[in-house]
Computed example of a mutant assay.
Amino acid sequence: MSERPDQNPLLTPLAASLPSTVPFVGPEAQERAAAAPFKARLGANESTFGPSPNAIRAMRQSVKETWMYGDPESHDLRAALATHLDVGMDEIVVGAGIDGLLDSLVRLTVTTGTPVVTSAGAYPTFNYHVTGYGGTIHTVAYTADFEDPDHLIAKARQVGAKLIYMSNPDNPMGTVHTAATIQRMIEGLPENCLLVLDEAYIELAPNGTAPPLNTSDSRVIRMRTFSKGYGMAGARVGYAVGHASLIGAFNRVRNHFGMSRVSQIGALAALADQDWLADVRDKVEASRQTLYQIAEDNGLIAIPSATNFVTIDCGRDGAFARAVLASLVAQGVFVRMPFVTPQDRCIRISCSVPKDMALVSKALPKALADAQKV
């Protein structure tokens, strides 16, 4: 008789105690279950506007080099990022998206029982990694759909946290704090506590969202990605910026050959095409306005967004919002929703091209009517 997975004697006690689940059910899994493709893929905050044509061209030309490993130092990309951000190369590490960088950071800093602080209902992959290394997660509630820097700091002081995780702009609500607010948070950090500031959506946020990069301050690490504004989610390229001593420590644990050569080359070309990024920002803003109007047309309230998605308050509780989401999915429109009360009264829809917005406009009234019947 075969062993149950959680009884496998090869697993560590910690691994055996973990659920064999992932933070997200991918749209591909949902398509397989439904035996039909989605008409609009609007749940993962991908950019349907795509990457720069220059990046596509560079990646296409580099495919013939796929027989080679990627540069384990990501030297050229780090050099370009250092110039773009006006920091040192030794203050940047490149990894397989922010998710991969979070894994390395947590591996460096968290062991059994290490306290960390985050917001209840914030981006769940951070929690996934902390749990995987045995850390103890302490959460604070959102305040009026915003992550609350003051409450995060207070909780960190209370529990002696080593890490505070916060995203700005926020996922899943799309709300944003000003640079001044984030800087006050940094200045208020407890001793020996690191702020993990996830800035995945920073290229799409209003000017004045990000405080100046200060890599001499060892109390904060900033994480960014090519997945959102640059439209390269499938390439898996992220980077972290911070004090050289912490960034250098990533070399102790990171997957040195985890970066695709094609992805590195594509990201380098994307970074050089800031005109394309500016055009994407304009398209995202237009789509946000469309989603605001769709919400209003259906008697709903859209939460103002600083990201490439809009979170829409369905006006009732989580059960009602889940019914709305289920109907949208059944109609072929892939969306997601926050998973913690009271944010789970909402659904979250990625910005996209006009044809996708037209599908949302058509599907949402039916989804609301269907939910009323549940």
Rank of each mutant, 00 (worst) to 15 (best):
I221R: 00
I247Y: 11
E296G: 12
Y230K: 00
G258P: 10
R184H: 11
G258L: 01
L102Y: 06
K228R: 13
K362G: 11
D71N: 13
E203G: 12
R288C: 08
N168A: 04
R345V: 02
F226S: 00
L85Y: 07
E73L: 15
L277M: 07
D170V: 10
R219G: 03
F320C: 01
A79D: 09
G258N: 11
P365C: 11
Y292P: 14
A286Y: 06
P115E: 10
T181L: 14
S305N: 03
T12Y: 02
P5W: 11
L364E: 14
G208V: 00
A210T: 05
N54V: 04
V25P: 08
L152S: 12
V237P: 01
N192R: 10
P37A: 13
L101A: 04
M59T: 08
K39F: 14
C314Q: 02
T66V: 04
M337G: 12
V117P: 05
T118Y: 12
I137K: 09
L197Y: 14
S245V: 07
Q264I: 01
H177K: 10
S287W: 07
N127S: 15
A302Y: 07
I221F: 05
G299T: 12
N168S: 09
T111M: 09
Y230C: 02
V310F: 07
D86G: 08
T131N: 13
L246G: 06
A272E: 09
F334N: 05
N127L: 15
I153C: 14
K64H: 15
F334P: 02
P365W: 03
I56P: 02
R288K: 12
V262W: 04
D76T: 03
D356V: 02
T111C: 12
M337L: 05
I312N: 13
F146D: 04
G234Q: 10
S350R: 00
R32E: 15
Y292S: 06
L359H: 08
W276Y: 12
T178C: 08
G315K: 00
V333T: 14
L204A: 02
T118G: 13
F320Q: 07
G229H: 03
P190T: 06
N298I: 05
G132V: 06
